[in-house]
Design a protein around this nucleic acid. Structure first.
Length: 500
RNA sequence: CGCGGGGUAGAGCAGUAGCAGCUCGCCAGGCCCAUAACCUGGAGGUCGUGGGUGCGAAUCCCACCCCCGCAACCA
């Protein structure tokens, strides 16, 4: 049996879940569900990143212990993922014992192979904040919080010999063993290597809220370094070798484009050093703008996924987010378009087709599935071929396009065949037409499943196929899954129209 | 010369050389099974600007204009 291991980034607990987190996570869920459908053994990992000076500061500001603060905020992510029907197999938290054990093992390994050395880290240090701050954070050269000029401070740090591994990584990217997708991101990453990159510090002396460096008394692991390791600790590195060996390397690390450097360079470099295989694919999707503007807290245009789910329901939110623009590219989201698209694609499309087909079967055939007919068999097999190909290329927007095509193909067929006339004139033809339509609805439900699992289950319910998950993918995709003589139900509207 | 993305119908986008497409909206018909849903047809584009290469360019090359993102922690 094939395995499929997919990850999202772990999200920083300092943030509230927003539409961007949801986008990445839903996309990963779609892929995970598709691979499960195919009968593969899937491990889908997401989680939260909980260490670092910022978290400690936020906790203090909130008057809470860092761990309590993390517990609360991590729970917010878990809650919204539940609401969105995210089917992750595990939720990794970087403050868990599982993670800490793996990090210690990994760092020790890096030290053993000589990939780590001691050096001086120098940066701007604000004595008010008691931490390093970046130049970007300064306002007129002063710390924005304490209105003080930061001093240049050096501390002893451990560094990772990134430069030792870059040539090898460039080679692996070029020969396709490490795939960076989409293609333009690959060039970007190769460009970074060409420019040359400095070794990076993997520890902090000034930070307290973190995982202790196993070979140092007073240093903690730099958050980014430790966060990346969630991809191995989350499946048991350092705690459960069996699961780890089964699922590593990852088939795909999915993320937004801002953190591609860490995933395409730093992380593979550390893995190489530790002697572990590299992930197959690093896929970076694009950013949203909201009504043409950058999404930002200060503009107040950040969309809360909770609010969207309240308005549209979980399935529709999943569909609407993923159908906005090609997966991988940047794109604009017009908030006002959601209602329009909900009505046209979901209410008038999938919802209405299901409703009209099942209503006709009820009205003309007493809800009994007629004799099998294979008119659409080849057509639909071809559509499945495109569907699987799109999934393989991670083009979820294409998947949605294909679903729409099957939908409108079936709608057009209804118009051409006019079952309401056949009911009076030609019962044989009516049976054929309705069988083809019923099967089309079944196939539609199956294609829709990774994107909209709830609605898919509902349609299978109306078709009295509650046991569909026990069947193999091949059986499900074969034409003729509905047995003649069985009953089907008349549906309730799957997507009630929204007025606007 | 910091890196990168983009400028195609009213809106949002697809389209890396061979009759310029999709969705929404708009207009006109049709249908009556269905969630006032569905189907058909139509109007609407000098594909940012100027050059170049080609039998042929939205698509390749050069220059320019404009928008946007990123540059150690907001997907």
């Amino acid at each position: 049996m094939n395995k499929f291991y997919i990850t999202t980034p772990i999200y920083y607990v300092n943030d509230k879940p927003h539409i961007g987190h949801a986008y990445t996570t839903i996309a990963a869920d779609v892929l995970a569900r598709f691979h499960r459908l195919k009968g593969e053994e899937v491990f889908f990992l997401t989680g939260t990143d909980e260490h670092g000076a910022k978290v400690a500061a936020s906790a203090e500001q909130a008057g809470k212990l860092p761990q309590d603060f993390c517990d609360e905020n991590s729970a917010k992510f878990q809650l919204i993922w539940d609401r969105l029907n995210i089917s992750n197999d595990h939720f990794i938290r970087t403050t868990s014992d599982q993670h800490k054990a793996g990090v210690e093992k990994f760092l020790t390994k890096l030290k053993e192979v000589g990939a780590v050395y001691e050096g001086d880290y120098s940066g701007l240090y604000c004595t008010g904040c008691e931490k390093f701050i970046t130049e970007k954070e300064l306002v007129n050269g002063l710390c924005p919080d304490h209105k003080k000029e930061p001093e240049v401070l050096k501390e002893k740090n451990y560094f990772f010999k990134l430069s030792d591994y870059l040539p090898k990584i460039a080679e692996l990217i070029n020969n396709g063993e490490l795939k960076i997708l989409p293609e333009n991101k690959k060039n970007e990453v190769l460009g970074l290597i060409k420019q040359g990159m400095d070794d990076f510090s993997i520890s902090r002396e000034s930070v307290k809220w973190g995982i202790k460096i196993p070979f140092s008394e007073n240093q903690v692991t730099y958050v980014w370094v430790e966060a990346l390791q969630n991809y191995i600790t989350g499946i048991g590195y350092g705690s459960d070798d069996k699961t780890f060996n089964k699922f590593w390397p990852a088939n795909i690390h999915l993320m937004a484009k801002d953190i591609i450097k860490f995933h395409a360079l730093y992380w593979p470099a550390m893995l190489l050093a530790a002697g572990l295989p590299l992930p197959e694919v690093v896929f970076a999707h694009g950013f949203f703008t909201i009504d043409g503007e950058k999404m930002s807290k200060s503009l107040g245009n950040v969309i809360d996924p909770d609010v969207l789910v309240d308005e549209f329901g979980s399935d529709a939110v999943r569909y609407l987010l993923l159908s906005q623009f090609p997966f991988g590219a940047d794109g604009d989201v017009k908030a006002g378009n959601f209602v329009i698209q909900y009505n046209s694609d979901l209410a008038n499309g999938i919802g209405n087709l299901t409703s009209r087909v099942l209503s006709m079967v009820e009205k003309y055939l007493d809800s009994i599935v007629p004799v099998k007919d294979f008119e659409f068999s080849d057509e639909v097999a071809g559509i499945w071929h495109q569907y699987e190909d799109a999934m393989k290329r991670f083009q979820i927007d294409d998947v949605i396009e294909i679903i729409r095509k099957l939908n409108s193909f079936a709608d057009g067929y209804v118009e051409r065949q006019k079952p309401w006339q056949l009911a009076k004139e030609d019962k044989d033809q009516l049976n054929k037409v309705l069988y083809n339509l019923l099967e089309s609805v079944r196939h539609l439900a199956l294609m829709v499943y990774p994107v909209m699992p709830e609605v898919s289950e509902k349609i299978f319910g109306y078709l009295n196929q509650a046991d569909w998950k026990n069947k193999s993918f091949k059986e499900l995709v074969d034409w003729g899954g509905l047995e003649s003589g069985q009953k089907v139900e008349k549906p309730q509207p799957l997507f009630p129209r929204l007025e606007k």
